Amino acid sequence: MTTLVRLEIVRTLRNRKYLLFSVLYPALMYFFFINAYGTGKLAGGLPVKTYFMVSMATFGAVGSVLTGSAQRISLERKSGWTRQLRLTALPGRAYTVAKIAAGAVTTLPAILVVFAVGASQGVRLDAGQWAGLAAALWLGSFVFAALGVAFGYAAAPDSVQTIVMIAYMAMALFGGTWFPVTGTLEKIARFNPVYLYNQLAAFTRPGHSLDLVAVAGLAGFLVVFTAAATALYRRDTRQA
């Protein structure tokens, strides 16, 4: 399993599309949003630059792991690679865990690059907040890694990219990635894993601490998505 994780990470980091769309694109979008919204503060006292630093970091992380995992798995299914892996001693559960772990590791560059850009633009957090925020967003990305694996086995190889992109953009749109959600929309957004993911940064706001409701919600989504990924992998095994 360790070997598979290492190979998956190396393959992803060598992918130029990954570097462009998951690492550089969110950083460029960050500049767009801070210029569009100005340099003031949003409701709750959170500076615009801090809010969009977090939302673009989560945007890059979710995009990296969700689309990357689903597309790689769909291609492996189409080429017969997963069928070959089943002939090895690697258990199905270990394969699923390896895919999730490898996907989550590749979210770190997307997060750290946007953080570096945010710091260069004047975002000020203490050392503990920077470390805590990076850890929270990285751990939260495991949820979407599991969802990406599930999508990879749920959808047909020819349609997986379209399905993932629609789901990804819908979750981002109503999850506070492009703009703060308030009122009725916020109540609905609490059932959206992307909204909960963005809420992990709540402790950076004046007078706030870590949102334990968001943590619990994401933990629940992780269990559900991992179980779904495992079940779909087994279904694919029976159909092979």
Rank of each mutant, 00 (worst) to 15 (best):
M1K: 10
T2G: 14
L4P: 01
V5L: 04
V5S: 08
V5W: 09
V5D: 01
R11Y: 13
T12F: 07
N15Q: 04
K17E: 11
L20H: 01
L20F: 14
S22F: 14
Y25D: 00
L28S: 03
Y30A: 03
F31M: 06
G38Y: 07
T39C: 02
K41L: 00
K41P: 00
A43V: 12
G45T: 13
P47K: 00
Y51Q: 04
F52E: 12
M56F: 14
M56P: 05
G60Y: 08
G60E: 04
A61W: 02
V62C: 10
V62Y: 07
V62L: 05
G63W: 06
G63Y: 10
G63F: 04
G63P: 05
T67K: 10
S69N: 15
I73F: 02
E76H: 03
E76W: 11
R77I: 03
K78H: 06
S79P: 01
G80L: 00
G80K: 00
W81K: 06
R83V: 04
R83K: 09
Q84M: 10
Q84E: 02
L85V: 13
L85I: 07
L87D: 07
L90K: 01
G92Y: 02
A94N: 02
A94L: 01
Y95D: 07
T96F: 04
T96L: 08
I100C: 09
A101L: 05
A101G: 01
T106Q: 06
T107E: 04
T107F: 13
L108E: 10
A110K: 10
A110C: 13
V114Y: 12
A116E: 02
G118M: 04
G118S: 05
A119Y: 07
S120L: 09
Q121W: 11
G122D: 08
W130G: 03
W130Y: 08
G132H: 12
L133R: 00
A134P: 04
W138G: 08
W138Q: 00
G140V: 14
G140F: 11
G140K: 12
F142G: 05
F144E: 12
F144M: 02
L147M: 14
G148R: 14
A155P: 01
A156Y: 15
P157Q: 11
D158A: 13
V160C: 09
Q161S: 08
I163L: 13
I166N: 10
M169W: 15
F179Q: 13
V181L: 12
V181I: 14
T182G: 04
G183F: 03
T184M: 09
T184P: 05
E186S: 08
K187N: 09
R190N: 10
N192M: 04
P193W: 07
V194F: 10
Y195S: 03
Y195L: 03
Y195V: 10
N198D: 01
Q199M: 08
P206D: 06
G207S: 02
H208L: 02
H208V: 08
L210H: 09
D211N: 13
V213F: 11
A214D: 01
G217E: 15
L218N: 12
G220E: 13
L222F: 15
A229D: 06
L232F: 08
R234A: 07
R235K: 05
D236S: 15
T237E: 15
T237A: 15
T237C: 08
R238S: 08
